[in-house]
Every structure is written in structure tokens, then in C-alpha cells.
Design a protein around this nucleic acid. Structure first.
Length: 447
DNA sequence: GCATGATCATGC
DNA sequence: GCATGATCATGC
């Protein structure tokens, strides 16, 4: 999918800049439509900082500068792009430190922390983190995170102390003795090699040029926090007064009866409508989650399910579960079966209503749901029948939708050749249990 | 390469 | 229009 560069954002407004930047997530610079590329900009080599320059100039339409003011000065926002890499175990880590402004030895000794250059330029940063891959052109790096980062709280205190330490050393005429090991989060890293040495106050010894930076380990902690915030439901802080359930439900309340376009507009999101996971993504966005999983639901073992109702109120589809293994079921009892475990869980149903024109879809309601005891007993019947058929070598003939009010069995495979062995050694297409659409309809109407 | 959630296709 | 079989899309 392409995204389009239109500069349709307000340079004075942090939220607007952030929304515009967010469109980059999961995209590459090369994949942006309307990106002008003149010969001189064409990426013959991956010169350092090329990604950042290109991003600023062509995506945001701001000139490269080395001002002491933030890139978006009216918004007080500094733009920083930085490389991250994927480790072998799948975790993400910073490729290198994030370099902030150059330290001017002559003037910094007169600064105070509160009004320092460092803070006024970098207090609020918009981080664009792209996945670095060796041998790839920078135009093909995939943007993984776009996040606002503010120097605040405990971090700010540690950074202040680091800053004071560095400045104290410079005041003492020891700029040439600065070392990254001196400090914790904020480092004074070497910057430039050929630029040579700079004069420093209170000493005749020349010192290598240095810049403030967020040290690599600190960048890693930033990444960790961004990852946590992406899969965590926003503002669950009122938990003391309200139940978890009601907080979640309230998140959805403003969107009742809104069609999905309007919901997206209000959320400021641009999801791919064609994706099969569109509605699940939309539901997560409503909760303020951009990651694939919702941390709170994972912990509480809640299973979120999307249901789309046809115009007549009938779910468009039955609800599937993971496929089962014939041989495994034959040796299990209902109580230790996967199906029982799945049905015992708490569900979170997010229901959308299709209009007569099926393109018109609005959010109807969301609710937590447990399968009622009597229906669990029905499911047990289906499961027992399934087991009996499998054990007796009739795995082809499992309970059909018409045979039970609650659930049935039917194929769930990649295609008809995606098979698995039955008890009598035959290969049969993978199947799973399904909840009947008619049963789901009842449950939705009841809640 | 496969599991999983979700959806499509077709015949009655 | 539904039941049933078949398949897609995504992420790990």
C-alpha cells in the first residue's frame, strides 16, 4: 500500500505533526507516493544521516538546518530519526546513540540547566525509528515506531545531573578529559573526527568536539517504554474507582452508531480497510493500542473477537477456533480439552453492524461475555460426539451446524491439502470447532 | 512454514 | 439465505 506525501499538517501543532508522521509506520521512504527525487539526492551511497535529511526535506518539507532551535519551533518539537535493529531473538534494540546538539565549550559554562540549549531544543522530541538492515538502501528501511518523547520525570532528573557533571568539568578546564563513561543517560560523545580540536575556556589544551547524546542503553529504555505504551490500554489509571470492564466499555461508548470512516477520522488513524484484520485494528485503536496484542487482555486471558452483523442482525460468519488434532482429542476428556479451555475464557465481543449496503458499517456495541453454563453443556455434547466419531474412525463425519444450537465442526485449513493424521492413520483436512452464527446472534441480542 | 483469526465461495 | 467446504492474510 502506498501513502501519499501532501504536507497536510500544521507545523505549529504537535498533534498534527505527530498524526502526519504516524502514517510512516510500517512504510518506507521509497514507498511514499509523490516523493520527489532529484539526481543529487538519489541515494548512491548510504551516507550517514541520509534517512534523516531525506525525511525532513521531502516528507516534512522543512529545510535542513543546524539551528539551536527545534525543527518545528512554533510547536517546540524536535525531529529525530534513528536506526533500530532486530536481534536474533526478535527483540528490538537501538543501533546507536541519539546525537543531540554539539557542545559549545565557550558558551555552555554560562548556561543554567533550566534555560540550557540542550533542554530548549530537545525537551520534546518526535522519534522516528526505522529498522536498519545491512545492505539495504535507506529508502527501503521500514519505519517501526513514531513516538513523542519528553524529557521529564525521573529521567529528567538524571539527565540534569549528567548535564551538570559535564558542564562542571568544562568549567574546570577539563573539556579534553570528557568521557562518555562519566554519565548515565546523557553522554558527551565525540562528534566529527576531521573537525579537529576546539578551544575550551579555562585551559589552553584543545579538546575534541563533542555533542550531547542519549546513550545507547538509554535509547533502549526509550524503546522499551514505547513498546509498552503501544500494547497498553491508555488511561487505565481510574482503576481504583471503576472496574476494568467498565473502563473498557466506556472507551467504546463515544463511537456507538458511528460508521467506521467517522471513527477513523475521530481517532486520526489511517488503517487499511482492505485488511482482514481491519476491524480488530480499529478496536485496538479505540483502546489506544497500536500493537498487535493488548497487554491487559493477555494478562487477564481475555479473548477479543470481532463480529460483523448482516442487515438482518445475523453475524456474517460463524466464529472459528484453532484447529484440533484428531489424535489428541481421542485421548482427552472434556475438562482437559482445548475447546473447553477456549470456551471457559472471558470474551470481549466487538460488534459492527452492516447496512443494507454492506460497505456501510457502523460500530454497534462491545461487551464482555462468558458462555452460559447450559451452553457450555451443549458444547460438551458436540465435543463428546466429535471425540466418539474420531475414535471410531469416522472423523469425516463430525457434528454439523444443523445438529446443535451452539456449535459445530468444520474445516479450518490452508486448503484442502492441509491435512493431519486421524486415529486410524488416514490424512484428513484440519478442522476446528465453530460457534454458530445463530447462537452468537442470540447472545448479542441478550447483552 | 505454519498457526490463527477471519473471510470467501458454492451448492442446495 | 444458509450450511458447509475452502481459502486468505498476517505474524511469529
Amino acid at each position: 500500500m502506498y501513502i501519499t506525501k501532501k504536507y497536510d499538517y500544521d507545523k505549529k501543532d504537535v498533534q498534527s505533526i505527530y498524526d502526519y508522521a504516524s502514517r510512516l509506520v510500517n512504510h518506507t521512504l521509497g514507498g511514499i507516493r509523490n516523493m520527489p527525487m532529484t539526481l543529487s539526492d538519489s541515494p548512491a551511497r548510504n551516507a550517514k544521516g541520509k534517512f534523516g535529511q531525506f525525511l525532513e526535506k521531502y516528507y516534512f518539507g522543512i529545510d535542513n538546518n543546524s539551528d539551536s532551535e527545534p525543527d518545528f519551533k512554533e510547536a517546540g518539537l524536535e525531529l529525530k530519526s534513528t536506526a533500530i535493529k532486530e536481534l536474533k531473538d526478535g527483540r528490538i534494540s537501538a543501533k546507536e546513540r541519539i546525537v543531540l546538539n554539539i557542545i559549545n565549550y565557550e558558551t555552555i559554562i554560562h548556561e543554567r540547566w533550566e534555560s540550557s540549549h540542550l533542554l530548549s531544543k530537545n525537551e520534546l522530541i518526535m522519534l522516528i525509528m526505522y529498522l536498519y538492515e545491512e545492505d539495504k538502501c535507506f529508502l527501503d528501511y521500514i519505519v517501526r515506531f513514531v513516538a513523542l518523547w519528553k524529557i521529564e520525570g525521573e529521567d529528567k532528573e538524571i539527565i540534569r545531573q549528567d548535564w551538570e557533571y559535564i558542564v562542571k568539568k568544562i568549567r574546570a578546564g577539563k573539556a579534553h578529559e570528557l568521557s562518555e563513561g562519566d554519565t548515565f543517560y546523557l553522554g558527551a560523545c565525540r562528534k566529527g573526527w576531521k573537525e579537529g580540536l576546539r578551544k575550551q575556556p579555562n585551559s589552553d589544551i584543545k579538546a575534541p568536539q563533542r555533542a550531547f547524546s542519549f546513550k545507547t542503553k538509554y535509547v533502549n529504555s526509550i524503546i522499551k517504554k514505547i513498546e509498552d505504551s503501544e500494547n497498553t490500554i491508555k488511561d487505565v489509571s481510574e482503576l481504583k474507582e471503576k472496574s476494568f470492564e467498565s473502563i473498557i466499555i466506556e472507551k467504546f461508548a463515544p463511537y456507538v452508531d458511528l460508521n467506521v470512516e467517522d471513527i477513523e477520522r475521530e481517532l486520526g488513524s489511517h488503517l487499511n480497510r482492505k485488511s482482514k484484520s481491519y476491524y480488530a485494528m480499529l478496536a485496538r485503536r479505540i483502546l489506544g493500542v497500536t500493537a498487535k496484542k493488548i497487554a491487559e487482555f493477555e494478562k487477564a486471558d481475555v479473548s477479543m473477537k470481532i463480529i460483523r452483523l448482516k442487515h438482518n442482525g445475523m453475524p456474517k460468519e460463524d466464529m472459528s477456533f484453532p484447529y484440533f488434532r484428531y489424535k489428541e482429542i481421542s485421548g482427552q476428556s472434556w475438562e482437559d480439552s482445548d475447546f473447553y479451555y477456549q470456551l471457559e475464557k472471558k470474551f470481549f465481543f466487538v460488534v459492527f453492524q452492516m447496512g443494507k449496503d454492506e460497505k456501510y458499517i457502523r460500530f454497534k456495541k462491545a461487551f464482555f461475555w462468558n458462555m452460559p453454563f447450559d451452553d457450555l453443556k451443549e458444547s460438551k455434547k458436540v465435543w463428546l460426539l466429535t471425540k466418539r466419531q474420531i475414535v471410531s474412525g469416522n472423523a469425516e463425519y463430525l457434528p454439523k451446524k444443523s445438529e446443535n444450537r451452539v456449535s459445530h465442526v468444520r474445516p479450518h485449513a490452508r486448503d484442502s491439502s492441509d491435512t493431519i493424521e486421524t486415529c486410524d492413520g488416514k490424512m484428513l483436512v484440519k478442522k476446528c470447532f465453530w460457534l454458530n452464527s445463530g447462537y452468537l446472534k442470540e447472545q448479542i441480542e441478550r447483552n
